[in-house]
Write a protein that binds this DNA or RNA. Structure first.
Lengths: 289, 289
DNA sequence: GATATTCATGCGTTTTTAGCACTAAAGTGT
DNA sequence: ACACTTTAGTGCTAAAAACGCATGAATATC
């Protein structure tokens, strides 16, 4: 049973004519006639009595008409409302990211984003586990590092580069050391390769006596003076600005695997809700150099 | 947009599974999957987020679900109610017949018929005009005499035979007269042919000094003693029983045109409402010998 | 880690629908 | 009273949609 046919029925009942209702719906009159006939077959009762030139609602037709009309309208309105919901950034946007990224990067952006989308609520789920986007009803996740292989869509936010930072400038006259005592991220690389301004390559072995599983805490350990650390660019902006941390080997290039970046990850590409699009656009704009 | 698909959507949302909902609807899971996809295309937004093994309502899906569900139920109930309306003799039955037939035949039947269908109202439109069944919303008409040529369905109630009746037995020893002073129905035959019990044929010329356009009034004229009259069988039952009228030529056969009868006439034969069927059955049963 | 469940898709077949031309009948206007 | 116009409905054919089945991919589950 077709909803459009029910709407057509309503219009036929209103106008008292297949031809007029067909014109409203941009249909050939014969199509209107046949659709109503099919509707009657589906329903199991006759809606109109017909002569070759006139139609009249049957008793059941009248009854059915008055009963379904408000509900047809309601369903149509529900559809409209739902369309608006995906067309405008309203409703609830569920975002997940690592605690560190959320704290360091997202939090400062949120006041302005929330102001730009007044009818939107944001639920920021900060966790260092990779949770299931579907089950948790996540609209968009921010994932760092390797691009996750999945059916989800990924768009790049910004490249991520790691450099060695510490409390004080590296002043050893012999230049880049062969090994360095560092605070490390759990499971991080054990060596980094640098290229000096003049082109020479230096491999630095990273000795770690303290491995931390949280980027923020790791940074704090570095600033507290435990040891230098290999830290991502996004984590150290303010510390570089106020001098709390300094680049140990400025001018050196760090060779890193390609596509090390921050990514938006979200399900599918058809019908991306506008709240998701709005968030992605806003954040990307603010974080791109 | 298909109503069944909307119901399917509701069940999928409830069970959280295409396969389960498909089983409920006796569908192949792939059909369920495709119907929901088509529904999403029609609606313009995505109802579920999917992985290969799980689905979850999107935010719009949830919103849409809760908004349309009661209306879907309401439409379904409207259909059920309408089906019941045609399946049981309830509602309003509009009947038209001639005033005479209504007075003489239908009126006595109505108490019992109404009792047999307690939820039915009857509107008895007695008129000697042949009104338009469609325009007036008539469910069933009773027409006497020649079968009307039309797109309507006709079923026979009972044969109609005309005989000559008067206040007193015909006692002329010479038997059937060649001509007879009669009260006639407007436009009625001017002669009748009788066959005696022994087989002899007698043509009686009907002389009319009074023609009446209403059968009841005509009968009354006869009983009042104006003259004998050519009256239909259905009109004289009680008068024959109580002796007010007598058959002038008992034992004689009256030759009449074929198919002179009382007919039910009603629009179409598909989806005859049960109130119409009930009425036709009841009346036919009571009037058949 | 093997198995089975679940959603999705490709493909050939069947069913449904649209569009057009045409018929029959009934209003409409002169 | 007559021609004209409008309206509902029907054949017919081409196009579109839906179905059922087999198959594939991914992920729960035991």
């Amino acid at each position: 049973m077709n909803i459009e046919s029910l709407h057509l029925f309503v219009d036929v009942a209103r106008t008292g004519s297949f031809a007029k209702a067909a014109a409203v719906h941009r249909l050939d009159p014969s199509v209107a006639s046949r659709r109503i006939s099919k509707l009657e077959r589906d329903l199991g009762f006759r809606l109109f009595q017909r002569t070759t030139r006139t139609i009249a609602l049957t008793e059941v037709g009248t009854e059915f008409f008055s009963r379904i009309e408000p509900h047809l309208i309601a369903i149509h309105e529900a559809q409209q409302a739902a369309r608006d919901l995906v067309a405008q950034p309203i409703g609830v946007l569920r975002v997940t990211a690592s605690t560190s990224f959320g704290y360091e990067i997202l939090s400062p952006l949120l006041p302005e984003f929330l102001a730009s989308a007044p009818r939107l609520r944001v639920e920021l789920m900060l966790t260092d586990r990779r949770i299931n986007l579907i089950e948790e009803g996540i609209d968009v996740a921010i994932r760092l590092g390797e691009l996750p292989d999945s059916e989800f869509v990924a768009t790049k936010i910004m490249p991520i580069t790691f450099r060695l930072y510490g409390r004080e400038k590296w002043s050893d006259a012999s230049g880049v050391p062969e090994q360095l005592e560092c605070v490390t991220y759990t499971g991080a690389a054990e060596a980094v390769r640098l290229r000096s301004p003049v082109g020479s390559i230096h491999d630095v072995k990273v000795n770690s006596r303290l491995a931390v599983s949280n980027a923020l805490a790791m940074k704090r350990c570095v600033t507290m003076g435990v040891a230098p650390g290999l830290l991502p660019n996004w984590l150290v902006k303010s510390e570089l600005a106020d001098g709390t941390l300094v680049d140990l080997f400025p001018g050196y290039d760090y060779r890193s695997e390609p596509d090390r970046a921050a990514w938006f990850v979200y399900p599918t590409r058809l019908y991306v809700p506008s709240k998701v699009r709005a968030f992605i656009e806003f954040v990307t704009k603010r974080l791109s150099p």
